[in-house]
């Protein structure tokens, strides 16, 4: 049986206490929320924090405030299954409900949290392996080694962002609050991520992601999330396409935001497609096709997830078109 390594556990009841503990312990500590990402990584010895700072006793992290009329704030410990089954979220930010519902499996969605999914460790088939397997390849840059086996000449790690909710929250223009012993800051979700498989979060080690802020949706706002994976459950996205848009009645795009998961170390911004779409009619199949092509262009898969790289590239076109069609009423 796979066992966790030994660790020390702290269970602060207040966010400030948690932040203080992290400030104290530095990189030797990890926060533990739902555990569905961290604990498997610990069992495979990819992460071996000496101390776990459990967040589950901190009530503030479960709080929820606001409403669709004014925008909503979800505590970081909001479970994915709560989001999946929330009628207000489904009505106003449908892409978020769709993304939450597509994560892993029902029990994992009952455990996994929104904050945890946003901070999900980047994934790579050379990294998400047991210690002897990783020893057999001489390890990799992300843990204990020197080389990135995805691109051995590369100076950086190419592990892949595999969160379903991050591209959606980017597309929705949501923000997160980060709390540390020094205080708190609020940043766009988009800015939470960095283009590096190892340092994939701009969140500092002493910071705790405490809340997600959803903007109030405009009446003409639409959003969708389309996920490509092998099976109907369990699997991480090999491509996730999140799109939000404001559409005029005639299908003209007022404004759009499109982000991808599974194609790089951070959610990929399909900015060119967005620029192309502005002012054009999504009901025009040629427009839709060209935009899909543009989205597929920035989906640059690497050979470190399920499915072949070239097929994922080809499938991206089809799935992008599907996502764009979903935006139409």
């Amino acid at each position: 049986m796979m066992r966790l390594p030994r660790f020390r556990y702290l269970a602060p009841r207040k966010l400030s206490e948690a932040a203080a503990a992290l400030a104290d312990l530095g990189t030797q500590a990890s926060v533990l929320a739902g555990g569905t990402d961290l604990l498997p990584n610990m069992k495979r010895r990819q992460q071996t924090p000496a101390t776990l700072v459990g967040l589950r006793e901190i009530r503030a992290l479960r709080a929820r405030s606001g409403d669709p009329g004014s925008g909503m704030t979800l505590g970081a410990l909001t479970r994915l299954s709560e989001i999946e089954h929330d009628s207000a979220i489904a009505a106003n930010w449908p892409a978020l409900a769709q993304a939450a519902a597509s994560v892993a499996t029902p029990p994992l969605r009952n455990m996994g949290t929104l904050g945890g999914n946003l901070c999900l460790d980047t994934r790579c088939s050379y990294y998400d392996q047991g210690p002897e397997w990783r020893a057999a390849i001489g390890y990799c840059m992300k843990k204990d080694g020197e080389i990135c086996w995805v691109a051995p000449g590369s100076p950086r790690c190419w592990a892949v962002t595999s969160t379903d909710t991050a591209p959606v929250l980017c597309a929705l223009g949501a923000e997160v609050t980060l709390v540390s012993a020094q205080g708190e800051r609020r940043i766009p979700v988009e800015d939470l991520f960095a283009d590096d498989g190892i340092e994939h979060l701009t969140k500092k080690p002493g910071e705790i992601l405490s809340a997600v802020h959803l903007q109030k949706p405009t009446p003409d706002a639409r959003s969708t999330y389309v996920k490509l994976r092998r099976r109907g459950s369990f699997d991480f996205p090999v491509l996730g396409i999140a799109a939000s848009a404001r559409l005029r009645a005639d299908g003209t795009v007022e404004e759009a935001r499109i982000f991808l998961s599974g194609t790089g170390s951070r959610p990929t911004n399909a900015a060119e497609a967005v620029a192309f779409l502005a002012g054009r009619k999504l009901t025009d199949e040629d427009v839709l096709r060209e935009a899909a092509e543009s989205i597929a262009h920035v989906a640059r898969p690497l050979q470190n997830t399920d499915f072949s790289m070239s097929w994922r590239k080809q499938a991206a076109r089809e799935f992008a078109a599907r996502a764009l069609r979903n935006l139409l009423p």
Binding site: Y9, L32, T36, L39, P106, N110, M111
Partner: peptide, 18 residues
């Protein structure tokens, strides 16, 4: 899978300390 505080969870990913 077990039910913990009314929710279906995976007991392999629940730390006993919690």
């Amino acid at each position: 899978a077990v039910i913990l505080d009314g929710e279906l969870v995976l007991s392999c990913l629940v730390a006993a300390v919690e």
